[in-house]
Design a protein around this nucleic acid. Structure first.
Lengths: 145, 145
DNA sequence: TTCTTTGCAGATAAAACACTCTTAAAAGCG
DNA sequence: CGCTTTTAAGAGTGTTTTATCTGCAAAGAA
């Protein structure tokens, strides 16, 4: 069950890593993140740019520059990140991919899926980055644990 | 939230359509299915071939041939279809895509995701094609409702 | 100022996924 | 048998996602 794209996977991993590093340094460089998490520097740069443009992060150029949270991670919900990286309709899609599906013209799985989707959305809406970030060891965010 | 690939979307739509057509004729031709559901004939053929090879369907060539359920749709669970078309590890993946994630080396989201995933699996495991198929109008399975 | 370090923006390349085509094989019908 | 209808199998094409490269702009330090 691949729910998230690579962009979201990498973005979340980077943000969770930052939650744990937060107190050590103001700005974290993308190079560091990419090396620590075994994620392509180029690709990660793009993803974090998107999060910066969405005002979840701030960036600073030059030596000792990098990125930092603009909003405290206690106030960033998983759904906020996911909606930026996957699109705002992330929690509103038909299981069968039918564009016309909705309350007016439900597909056979509409009610079934609506319930599951609602519960999932609820969890993502109420779980913050901070909450998740303090859950585990940093190394568990790496590719090879 | 794109949970299913196009293959699964198309496959499920075809099977749900068949549930409703089941009593009318023994075999349904893939050509008919593709036309009724606005799905590419070539692509649908491949998908249904896979389901036939997985012993969920039987096929018959020649005039008035087509495909039919091998197992009654009351006994085919949504998870059966999905596991064939998406792979058997469908309900066992890490949210962050980390290959090493598991009980031994959980990623920060492991517990969180495990619960959601479990509930989802439970629903897919206990809901049959027959149950879903009788839910709605056939036309709601078409692309343009 | 000049050099180094860092992120930004747009272009390009590779890989995965979705879809199409062609040929073959099976089954029925005259 | 020869012809038509239908699925099977494998190769080929197109599109989207993922990843990489190149040039540039901002910021700090010598």
């Amino acid at each position: 069950m691949k729910v998230l794209s690579k962009s979201s996977e990498y973005g979340l991993r980077a943000l969770l890593y930052m939650v744990r590093k937060q107190n050590e340094q103001e700005y974290v460089s993308i190079r560091d993140l990419s090396e620590q998490l075994d994620i392509s520097f180029y690709f990660l740069t793009k993803i974090l740019q998107t999060l910066t443009q969405a005002n979840l992060l701030v960036s600073y150029r030059g030596p000792n520059g990098g990125i930092a949270f603009k909003v405290p991670p206690e106030k960033i919900m998983l759904s906020d990140v996911v909606r930026v990286l996957e699109g705002s309709d992330f929690f509103d899609k038909c299981l069968l991919g039918l564009p016309g599906c909705g309350e007016m013209a439900p597909c056979p799985m509409h009610e079934f899926w609506k319930e599951i989707k609602g519960a999932l959305k609820q969890e993502f809406d109420t779980t913050s980055l901070a909450e998740m970030g303090h859950n585990a060891q940093i190394r568990s965010l790496r590719l090879i644990p």
